[in-house]
Nucleic acid binder design. Structure first.
Length: 840
RNA sequence: GCGGGUGUGGCGGAAUGGUAGACGCCGGGGACUUAAAAUCCCCUGAGCCUUGCUCGUGCGGGUUCGAGUCCCGCCACCCGCACCA
């Protein structure tokens, strides 16, 4: 029975991996242009930042994409599955400061390391299209595209706040601000205004919002998050007359609650606040205090709500009541007009503020007109009817909003307005390791674009990181250039672009890489949009929104004809691991501990270790495992299999030693099974044939739906089924089919076995098995029998047995009769082929 | 604070409103072996008066012949919040 030559050999993952990776390379199987005539499939995973080494999160991400890419190839597609590097960014500069290495050298070393790691895992990538965003051959084109947007009026400059470290005299990223202090200096961070470059993403707010409607294969949660982020709202913008003769413009999405207004508040940056600060020392001190601390929304919104009353009063547009005006730290200058009317009864922030300041809290919306004076323990934001509101009384909220807007417009003190939460995208970074912004500042001519023939503006290599701040700014010669317009001495822009710009069009560059242009429009037409994009949910808003914006902006300037870059999106979960700590709270890595009965101890000295929560793998908690070390021990196929097993791909995947051992066992178990294929065996096993065809169809469906854990479960099942089956022609064919089905997941084992059973050619180029639809259905079914909804028996009957017969069979069951205890039948529900429910 | 998500055995999870726990891991028992590893077979939600019954999908309600699945209200944890990528 065990005739194959393979069964005498053990499967040696290291040898097989090297052999077949070389074979794929030599055959050029994964070059995208290999099958020009086939329908296209562009499979893309978010490209990595070259941080040093590949981590398990990358392996999971790229394994999913790889399985899909290999499957698509087997089902007759021309597949574009590329890889590159998101190579600009802060960590390279940090490394330069800490270790004295050049950011470029550090980055290129990391890329070399990580490329080698990815190759070891056997991904079916078209490496001929690889690039890094820090290549001048990439970022030079980005500069040209930036100039396109500039010419189209989508780029502008304005003042904007940054986190300023007053000791290091440096702009800090949000993550470099810890508890309001600079991470290196420990100085209290301030907000400081700088002239910065902006992209007019708000010009596309409507289009980006509407476009979400076409992305029906994106996860609902991502579309919802983007929708909320764009934050379209309609409301009333209107003016309060001030007691000093001036006025203040406010915006409210709930103008219906206007009769509940008990104060007016402006942002600390609001002109009114600045004016007050000039004349009033107290106001100046308060505004100054508000400038302390970081710039993040979370920080601003969780800060205690504080305000300072200034000398003017605002007149209520309907009642004429004099409302106090405050400068308040919870009012944002970036949203609406930077000023609000405070309605404590129906806005939680206003409620908290009014409570601490002793301002009146009025109810103007109630569940019914009879509850007009129900007390408010907190802000009531529910729908209801207007009360205590003059001409609005009795209206529903929506009706009242329309009424107030109409009245304001008629009387000329306000107008209905659509406001977006989305703000323009600030792309200036006061850093070295990024794409130089291609502009020159001339005292006579102003801001002048670098002429296109002078692109790329290349970063200087000779920079020093001995002191904080932007090395481009203090470089002795780089920024000194003649003005392209008048020829007089001028200086280069020293800000570089946000790295999100780099990742906003890389998927276009993968489709073609001409030297003289960013991309070839014909190749964009051929490959785009990306058919399946896969990455972490942490990119659900920013990266994906920016990439959608760039695509539309490039279409707007005529570079491409494409609205949405990613036809389908999948967001995968994180790889997690148990954490280990000593009594003093210090973390230990998985390699430093071992199990000792029910407990954990440190290997070095037997010290007791606490096994803690299962959390995302991170260097700081030391709960990481290195992919290379795991491949050394178990082989690439076992790691790939683990990445696909058990956890649904959108959820977190807990790494475990036991789990990877189980996967490695299964790899070898399959090898033994493949070795049992006996081409001489005769006879048909119909039941096994059915299982095989059901599995082929099911696995295909699971892979297409990216439900790899379900595909894995089906493959385990089928393997067990085949193992238990006696030899037959059906069984031999089943083994060959199983090999094809596992090949996208365990490509090295599959190639080795494919060759072992004497098949010609590479399994990487084989076709997905055909399904016989007649074999998909069983002819017997198991029907559940319930009494009053509780399972009492099951029946095995021919598929399609009619209802009356099922009912009779059910009533004849002894278990059913006992459960009924003589009660009369009131109703019988029959679901053919599934269930009979007898209600008594 | 705001926005989004998740919750089912010891663990990861499966289940078009229709047999909860497929498949895998761990654990237990057995076979093979001088022995071990490897491999193979069986058992494995809890409880009980064990031909079978009761309970059970984070918690509390509801809809339904029937709810893990639908609705309402909570709790816990995770992700994002515009200069981390």
């Amino acid at each position: 029975m065990h005739g194959g030559a393979m069964s005498d050999r053990h499967f040696d993952p290291a040898a097989a991996e090297a052999r077949w990776q070389r074979a794929w390379d030599e055959a050029g199987c994964f070059a995208a242009d290999r099958h020009g005539d086939r329908p296209k499939a562009y499979v893309l995973e978010m490209f990595p930042y070259p941080s040093g080494r590949i981590h398990m999160g990358h392996v999971r991400n790229y394994t999913m994409g790889d399985v899909l890419a290999r499957y698509k190839r087997m089902t007759g597609h021309a597949v574009l599955h590329p890889m590159g590097w998101d190579a600009f960014g802060m960590p390279a500069e940090n490394a330069a400061m800490e270790k004295g290495v050049h950011p470029g050298a550090w980055t290129r070393d990391n890329i070399a390391t990580m490329r080698a790691q990815l190759k070891r895992i056997g991904f079916a990538l078209d490496w001929s299209r690889e690039f890094a965003t820090c290549d001048p051959g990439y970022y030079g084109h980005e500069q040209a595209l930036f100039l396109d947007l500039y010419e189209a009026g989508l780029v502008y400059r304005r003042e904007s706040e940054v986190n300023w470290d007053p000791v290091d005299r440096t702009v800090l990223a949000n993550e470099q601000v810890i508890d309001g202090r600079g991470w290196r200096s420990g100085a209290l961070v301030e907000r400081r205004k700088l002239d910065q470059w902006f992209l007019k993403i708000t010009a596309f707010a409507d289009a980006l919002l509407d476009g979400l409607g076409t992305l029906d294969t994106w996860p609902d949660k991502v579309r919802l998050m983007q929708e909320n982020w764009i934050g379209r709202s309609t409301g009333l913008q209107f003016r309060f007359r001030l007691s000093d003769g001036g006025s203040v413009e406010v915006y409210s999405t709930r103008p219906d609650t206007i009769f509940g207004a008990s104060f007016v508040a402006v942002a600390p940056d609001h002109p009114l606040a600045r004016a007050a600060a000039e004349t009033d020392v107290e106001a100046a001190a308060f505004v100054e205090q508000c400038r302390k601390g970081g710039t993040t929304a979370a920080e601003l919104e969780t800060a205690e709500k504080r305000g300072l009353r200034i000398g003017v009063m605002a007149a209520h547009p309907f009642t004429g009541a004099q409302l106090p005006v405050y400068i308040a730290n919870f009012v944002l200058m970036d949203y609406g007009t930077g000023a609000i009317m405070g309605v404590p009864g129906h806005d939680q922030r206003d409620f908290e503020f009014a409570s601490t300041c002793g301002l009146p809290i009025l109810r103007v919306v109630a569940p019914s007109v009879h509850e007009a004076d129900a007390p408010l323990a907190e802000a009531d934001t529910a729908d209801g009817v207007l009360v205590n509101s003059d001409f609005l009384d009795g209206m529903r909220v929506a009706e009242a909003i329309a009424a107030v807007v109409a009245r304001a417009e008629a009387e000329g003190w306000g107008e209905g307005k659509t406001v977006w939460r989305l703000r323009d995208w600030g792309v200036s970074r006061q850093r070295y390791w990024g794409t130089p912004i291609p502009f020159i500042h001339c005292e006579a001519c102003g801001v002048v674009p670098v002429p296109r023939e002078q692109l790329p503006v290349v970063l200087p290599e000779d920079v020093d990181f001995a002191t904080p701040g932007n090395p481009l700014e203090r470089h002795p010669t780089w920024k000194h250039v003649p003005c392209p317009r008048c020829g007089r001495a001028a200086r280069r822009e020293t800000d570089t672009l946000d790295t999100f710009v780099d990742s906003s069009w890389y998927f276009l560059r993968f489709a073609s890489q001409p030297a003289d242009r960013p991309f070839d429009p014909a190749e964009i037409a051929r490959w785009l949009p990306v058919d399946q994009y896969i990455g972490g949910v942490e990119h659900a808003i920013l990266h994906l929104l920016y990439a959608r914006f760039w695509t539309r902006a490039l279409a707007h300037v005529g570079r491409i004809a494409l609205e949405e870059p990613f036809a389908s999106l999948f967001t995968q979960g994180m790889v997690t691991h148990e954490t280990y700590s000593l009594g003093d709270g210090s973390w230990l890595s998985p390699g430093e501990v071992r199990r000792d009965g029910a407990d954990w101890v440190r290997i070095a000295d037997g010290a007791p270790v606490t096994a803690g929560r299962v959390v995302k793998m991170s260097k700081s908690k030391k709960n990481v495992v290195d992919p290379d070390a795991i491949i050394d021990r178990f082989g690439a196929d076992a790691v790939r299999w683990f990445m696909l097993s058990d956890s649904p791909p959108e959820r977190d995947l807990p790494w475990s030693e036991a789990g990877i051992e189980g996967c490695a066992r299964f790899v070898h178990r399959l090898w033994r099974l493949f070795g049992q294929r006996d081409p001489q065996a005769a006879g048909v096993n119909r039941a096994l044939d059915r299982r095989v065809h059901q599995t082929v169809a099911g696995v295909a469906q699971d892979i297409e739906g990216l439900q790899f854990n379900k595909a894995v479960a089906k493959l385990y099942s089928l393997a067990g089924e085949i193992e238990r089956a006696p030899p037959s022609a059906s069984r031999s064919e089943a083994i060959r089919t199983l090999l094809l089905l596992v090949s996208p997941m365990m490509p090295h084992l599959a190639e080795e076995a494919w060759a072992g059973i004497g098949e010609a050619g590479l399994i990487a180029e084989a076709s997905w098995p055909q399904v016989d639809p007649d074999l998909l259905v069983e002819d017997e079914v198991t029907v559940a029998v319930q009494v009053k909804g509780k399972l009492r028996d099951t029946l095995t009957v021919a598929r399609g047995t009619d209802g009356a017969q099922l009912e009779a069979l059910a009533l004849a069951s002894a278990n059913v009769q006992r459960a009924m205890a003589g009660a009369p039948v009131r109703k019988v529900i029959v679901v053919p082929d599934r269930l009979v429910n007898i209600v008594t």
